[in-house]
Amino acid sequence: MRVALTGADGFLGWHVRVLVKALGWPEPVLLTRSEMRDADAVAVRLEGIDRVLHLAGVNRGEPAEVSSGNVDAAAALAEGLRRCLAPPGTVVYANSIQAGNGTPYGDSKAMAAALLAEACDDLRDVRLTNLYGEHGRPHYNSVVATFCRILAEQGRPEIHEDRQLSLVHVTDAAAHLLDAPTSGSWDGRMPELRIGLRDLADRLATFAAIYRTGEIPPLPDRHAVRLFNTYRSHCFPAHYPMPLSRRSDARGELVETVKAHGSAGQTFCSTSHPGVVRGEHFHLAKVERFCVLSGSGEICLRRVGHRDVVRFPVSGDEPVVVDMPTMWVHNIVNVGAGELLTLFWTNELFDPASPDTYAEPVEAGSLVPAMAVS
Rank of each mutant, 00 (worst) to 15 (best):
L12W: 13
L12G: 09
G13H: 13
G13Y: 14
G13A: 14
G13W: 13
G13C: 14
G13K: 07
W14R: 15
W14Y: 14
W14M: 13
W14K: 12
H15L: 01
V16H: 05
V16A: 08
V16Q: 05
R17C: 13
R17K: 12
V18N: 02
V18F: 03
V18K: 00
V18A: 11
L19M: 09
L19F: 07
L19I: 10
V20N: 04
V20M: 09
V20C: 09
A22R: 08
L23Q: 08
L23F: 07
L23D: 07
G24Y: 04
G24D: 03
G24K: 09
P26G: 10
E27G: 08
E27C: 06
P28L: 14
P28N: 15
P28F: 15
P28G: 15
P28V: 14
P28A: 14
V29T: 15
V29G: 01
L30H: 02
T32C: 03
T32F: 02
T32E: 01
R33I: 00
R33L: 02
R33K: 07
R33P: 02
S34D: 14
S34G: 05
S34C: 03
E35F: 12
E35P: 06
E35N: 03
E35V: 11
E35Y: 06
M36N: 06
M36L: 07
M36F: 01
R37G: 08
R37I: 00
D38F: 08
D38W: 09
D38S: 11
D38A: 10
D38N: 15
D38Y: 11
D38V: 10
A39K: 06
A39T: 11
A39Y: 09
A39I: 07
D40H: 08
A41C: 07
A41N: 11
V42C: 00
A43W: 01
A43K: 04
A43N: 02
A43H: 00
V44E: 15
V44W: 09
